[in-house]
Design a protein around this nucleic acid. Structure first.
Lengths: 121, 121
DNA sequence: AAAATAAGTAGGAGATTCCCTACGCGTCAA
DNA sequence: TTGACGCGTAGGGAATCTCCTACTTATTTT
């Protein structure tokens, strides 16, 4: 029954700091073999291989064989879909930031009254 | 040891279709009590309560008591942070879409050669 | 051909997820 | 005050996640 959707797989893949760091490395340092990626983690290499598998199945990375290495490469298309998913929510945080702005604007005047000192009896 | 970060909690909260649908309902229909939300799901109400708890702990919803109801409300700030996180990846899918665009531009000319008809012998 | 290298797979332990039913707590209505 | 209502929490079961240590497979080097 619980056949995960594409979106489930993408968000689940992103819900782990190790996998997000893998994506960052592939983004900042370009395509790399597993060995090079593994140097940045305390984790065992097989565990890292499984993280890469999760990213692969979410479509977030692709793999190319080169001799006995496998070069992993960032695939950003699913992230584009995440951004599309965020779209309809955007106006909500814009509204919230706007009212925070107003609040901050009012503070200089209102602070003296916001926390009134107690009077001695 | 693996104390989840804020970002872990947000992505994990989003990695479930029920919770994403809850967010959509709060976005499209505004703040609501649990009962109203529950009408849209086949799931038991206590299970839904736990999904709301996950969303609460990710900061994606807030709760206000009104009599014996609890009104849930969308809090979009963490989604704003997701968008910020996406920022550095944006150029990757733009690059990819651009080259897809080029490809599509070439198709009208190349299709006749792309799948050549077999000649009769 | 044998050894070394790169990386995936098997299998398992412990934690977490996601669903359920049963129950407890506070609030409103008779 | 008694009962009904709205919601959360407890506890449990099945599945999944995340890590590990072997082990296998494929390729390159000696």
């Amino acid at each position: 029954m619980p056949s995960a959707t594409d979106q489930d797989r993408v968000f689940a893949a992103l819900a782990n700091a190790t996998r997000r760091e893998l994506l960052r490395l592939l983004r900042d340092d370009g395509p790399q073999p597993v060995r090079a990626l593994a140097e940045h983690f305390a984790m065992s290499r097989p565990s890292l291989s499984e993280h890469l598998k999760v990213l692969r199945e979410a479509g977030l990375v692709s793999e190319r064989r080169a001799g006995r290495q496998r070069i992993y490469r960032l695939e950003a298309a699913p992230l584009c879909e995440v951004q599309d998913w965020l779209g309809p929510y955007e106006r909500f945080w814009r509204a919230r930031l706007a009212s925070l702005g107003e609040l901050l604007d009012r503070i200089p005047d209102e602070i003296p009254h916001a926390i009134p000192r107690e009077e001695a009896p």
